[in-house]
């Protein structure tokens, strides 16, 4: 209805800094300060990163030190999260395990984001037969259930954490390809891309200088949301024995070996599971916050 239409009623956008998404730190701070959940996500992530960096200093015990006298000890002042079946301190293993688990999460996302974005941006800009061919390959990849596909790849590469990481990264590439391609399809019609064509810029130049920088905002949001998923998937692969191998401290592997003790020694699988959960939630909250910040429809509110 015309006379209650609110669309035109947005207050004028601030004159300076209104169109720059990634660079406008003041705007990001402003939005973050008004979103307690994103703040919580950010706090969790800072906490996890600090844990990774400070592991040698903050962990109470050596994560691999056996203590057969105190096997399967319940949580106590000496062992806050208890010990496992060979007497290793679970808290220390969780602290050290953050290095493996979170690094693997970042690694998976970095690999799939970088290769997926490059492929997608090029595909979208190239169009025609090249685009169709690339997208059909991606459709094939997507048509397998992601976890089964990752499992098959990891099994084929051999049980090892690096292989598990590569396998999951490959499975996640198509998501980024689709996202980046969609961005490229809309960006390639922008006048600045047309202008670059008029002075004879090559496709590579256009992808690197114009498409990728401008497509980054939604891709970064996606990747933040993905880190949680990646950590979970890597843990799941470790859980079924295709990822981290003993004695490496890794959250998924810890849950896996702890599952036999769930009924009698609940603390063994529960605390590593909580670590996975909290970290994944942290990244998801941050990702949601970033998505809201980058959403132009929410601008100016």
């Amino acid at each position: 209805m015309a006379n209650t239409e609110l669309m035109e009623g947005r207050p004028p956008e601030p004159v300076i800094g209104s169109s720059s998404g990634l660079l406008d730190w003041r705007y990001m701070r402003y939005r973050f300060a008004r979103s307690p959940l994103s703040m919580l996500g950010l706090a969790i992530i800072i906490f996890v990163l600090a844990m990774m960096a400070l592991a040698p200093w903050i962990s109470p015990y050596d994560p691999n030190k056996l203590d057969l006298l105190h096997r399967l000890a319940p949580p106590s002042a000496a062992h806050w999260f208890g010990t496992d079946q060979v007497g290793r301190d679970i808290l220390s293993r969780i602290i050290w395990g953050s290095r493996t688990s979170v690094t693997v999460g970042f690694g998976i996302v970095a690999i799939s984001m970088i290769s997926g974005t490059a492929i997608g941006a090029f595909s979208g800009l190239a169009g025609g037969g090249i685009d169709t061919a690339i997208m059909r390959v991606m459709d094939v990849l997507l048509s397998f259930p992601a976890f089964v596909m990752a499992m098959a790849l990891a099994a084929a590469l051999g049980p090892d954490l690096t292989n598990a990481m590569l396998a999951i990264a490959v499975v996640r590439i198509p998501f980024y390809v689709r996202l980046a391609r969609g961005q490229a399809l809309s960006l390639r019609e922008r006048p600045y891309v047309k202008a670059a064509e008029t002075f004879g810029a090559s496709r590579i130049h256009i992808v690197i200088r114009h498409i990728i920088p401008n497509a980054m905002a939604p891709i970064i949001v996606q990747s933040t949301l993905d880190i949680g998923v990646a950590i979970l998937t890597a843990s799941a692969l470790s859980f079924i024995g295709l990822g981290a191998q003993e004695p490496t401290a890794e959250w998924g592997a810890m849950v896996a070996s702890g599952r036999d003790f769930l009924l009698d020694q609940w603390w063994y699988p529960t605390f590593p599971g909580m670590a996975i959960l909290v970290t994944a939630v942290g990244f998801n909250l941050l990702g949601d916050g970033l998505r809201d910040i980058f959403d132009p429809r929410l601008r100016g509110k």
């Binding site: 922008r190 006048p191 002075f199 920088p213």
Partner: peptide
Amino acid sequence: LRRRFQVVFQDPQSSLDPRM
């Protein structure tokens, strides 16, 4: 040949890459 004809578009907002 291309260098010898150039273009200026209508909307200066969208004809300049915001990230450059």
